[in-house]
């Protein structure tokens, strides 16, 4: 069994490198296809043809784009992610502190939302059709259908503007105590949990209910297993595959998709960095961010696939 998993991981690693290359090239092609380049964006309204030509030459952007792409690609093997076009800083320096911020936010959100969501999903499935199940459904859909910016803005209005319990902005650099940590992260984490929990709750519930209907679980029911035992012991392990996939898909949102939360709480993370990079057509920065998101995504889904395989004896 272990060897099987090891082989799978190795195979996936190889494929991951290929996927990364493909994504990298696609992102490169997409950026090049977009009208306007970094020089035109930087000069903005001042982009007269001669000014553009002059700056482009000075920034060594006259080389064909594909050549610059290959140079960048070569650089990452030596650990050099290139220099940002927009502000001449090393990409690694720009991303470093922001990545740490993003990972912190994602980590805390995961710790909060995953246990809550799984518990709600499983219990809802256990008492399917009950008032509890229905209210979980209506609440989770109701909450996820409120646009993220509205959740965040409402939270700020209530807790920061009127009650003054929490700060409206999240300054990650001003955390020294655990109390400050709670104050700074409370609202961003709750907002994000609202957004990602619904998918986990709903999918967990659906997957567990589905396995409850299989002949194998029905057999256990006939044997007289209790409802709780039935769900936890028999249904859950079989439903684990779809559940971890739903969790992985939800969590993959936490790095690149949190732009609204980063903007409203003025929390400097990588999502805003990527959006900026696209707006300024900053190729090395776009590429590195895209790679980063891709690696995290691949890591999440590969973990999900491995858990799915391990949980189902027939797949091993």
């Amino acid at each position: 069994m272990n060897r099987h998993v090891l082989n799978l991981v190795l195979a996936r690693l190889m494929i991951a490198v290929i996927t990364l290359l493909i994504v990298s090239f696609t992102v490169f092609a997409a950026t090049v296809l977009l009208p306007g380049d970094v020089v035109e964006v930087l000069l903005g309204q001042a982009a007269t043809p001669e000014a553009v030509a002059g700056l482009r030459a000075a920034m060594h952007l006259d080389d064909p784009a594909i050549w610059r792409f290959i140079q960048w690609l070569g650089g990452i093997f030596t650990g050099d992610f290139g220099i940002s076009y927009a502000n001449n800083m090393p990409v690694a320096d720009l991303i470093g502190p922001r990545l740490a911020n993003s990972l912190k936010l994602a980590g805390i959100t995961t710790l909060v939302s995953v246990p809550v969501a799984l518990t709600l999903g499983i219990t809802a499935a256990m008492w399917r059709g009950s008032w509890f199940d229905r209210s979980v459904t209506i609440l989770s859909i109701g909450i996820v259908s409120v646009p993220e910016f509205m959740v965040a803005t409402s939270a700020v209005l209530v807790f920061a503007v009127y009650l003054k319990w929490l700060p409206a902005l999240s300054f990650a650099n001003e955390i020294h105590t655990f109390g400050q940590l709670l104050r700074v992260y409370a609202m961003p984490v709750i907002t994000l949990s609202f957004v990602i929990s619904a998918q986990m709750i709903r999918m967990t519930r659906a997957a567990v209910i589905d396995t409850l209907n299989t002949p194998y679980v029905e057999m256990a029911l006939l044997k007289g297993a209790s409802r709780k035992r039935l769900v936890l012991k028999h249904a859950l392990p079989n439903a684990l595959g779809p559940i971890v996939n739903a969790v992985a898909l939800s969590l993959s949102y936490l790095l690149g998709g949190v732009i609204i939360v980063e903007t409203i709480f003025n929390y400097p993370g990588v999502a805003k960095l990527m959006v900026d990079a696209v707006s300024t057509r900053d190729l090395p920065l776009i590429q590195t961010c895209a790679m980063l998101f891709c690696i995290v995504y691949l890591f999440l889904i590969t973990t999900a696939d491995i858990i799915a395989i391990l949980s189902n004896p027939r797949l091993r």
């Binding site: 965040a152 920061a160 503007v161 700060p167 902005l169 903007t263 409203i264």
Partner: peptide, 19 residues
């Protein structure tokens, strides 16, 4: 000094005393 592009967020930060 920093930028808060969201109009409501900027006003709310002022009203809450953060800026």
């Amino acid at each position: 000094f920093f930028g808060i592009p969201d109009d409501s967020a900027r006003v709310n930060a002022l009203l809450s005393g953060d800026i």
